[in-house]
Nucleic acid binder design. Sequence first.
DNA 1: TTGAATTTTCAGTATTTTCTGAAACTTTGA
DNA 2: TCAAAGTTTCAGAAAATACTGAAAATTCAA
Lengths: 189, 189
Amino acid sequence: MNLPPLIQSFVLHFGEMGSHWGINRTVGQIYALLYVSDRPLNADDIVEAIGCSRSNTSMALKELQAWRLVKLQHLPGDRREYFSTPEDVWAIFKTLAEERQKREVEPTLTMLRGAIMETPSGEAERHAQARMNEMYQLIELVTKWFADIRDMDVETLEKLMKLGSQVGKVLQFTQSLGRLAGRDNGKED
Amino acid sequence: MNLPPLIQSFVLHFGEMGSHWGINRTVGQIYALLYVSDRPLNADDIVEAIGCSRSNTSMALKELQAWRLVKLQHLPGDRREYFSTPEDVWAIFKTLAEERQKREVEPTLTMLRGAIMETPSGEAERHAQARMNEMYQLIELVTKWFADIRDMDVETLEKLMKLGSQVGKVLQFTQSLGRLAGRDNGKED
DNA sequence: TTGAATTTTCAGTATTTTCTGAAACTTTGA
DNA sequence: TCAAAGTTTCAGAAAATACTGAAAATTCAA
């Protein structure tokens, strides 16, 4: 690996982190490298920087494209393919959430629906179904909500997050709006 | 594996899903089994149901305890250890988020802080630091927010989620109320 | 159409992770 | 204290995953 120490530690960390998230090390490293790079990189740049084989790089880039985490582009007068990550960190975050949703959450919901439909034979199975149903309801609620906030514009999203748990008070406040009680908006820190 | 088909498909699915999330198959399966079980199970029950070795079960249970995802208990008049999952699916969700935070997010923030502190030598490194800083800000915002909503009571949380993107509108509304009242309800850092 | 540049595929190898059985350890009741 | 019941540890086997180099395929300009 042939990188300034500052960037190297970032790249190595993402490699390790990948393992904890079911992503292979090279994929994590390449992603990290592209993320901090100030220009698009081609496969040979990456081989040079990371120190893995050309073919491994090709596989990893393919996987990153499948996740929609990197953009492919061509530079004028150069046949090679160049890769970069989207600028906007929020966009990255949203893409990741969307892909996880599609790949893991949806199949889980499908499995749960199937199991919940079955006719239980006996108390144990009836209980299992009730538990699966609880899980189903939770996952559905959370993912619908994620989809909702995903579609909010970043400005509003950041405001919402900065508000934090205060949003609970805002909620209670708006619920009592029917009475038009003329108090302030309930922020105290 | 010796389970009703309905439960078996659930258990197998969680085994597979585990791999995508950096959790080993047996751990995922055992967790799923305990989740749907209508009574606490001991290690031999688990071996019988899943069909793995006794020692593997022991390891997996240890890991699940480290994640605080299973409770250990003793039944009167029985020396064996019995395991079960918390009843409340929300609690499970929160525990998972907390542990991930501690194990993966915190170390990442520490690494980022370290890298951002370094003195950059050259434009490439300066750019890399700027990118790392963007990531740092995002992660910090999201985790603070998670911590905030984690501490909300389930009732409020469910209301909030059901409200979905409507919360954006409520937010804008209360912000204009805040301005009218002469204060800003966005938290400052 | 050719051939140089580039990317992809794939079979085999290396590495990592998971799983097992045997042995060691712990706990508890007599 | 012992012995029985139960649990954990750990070295090595098995399985899964990642990585490589060589060869095949693709692309593009002439």
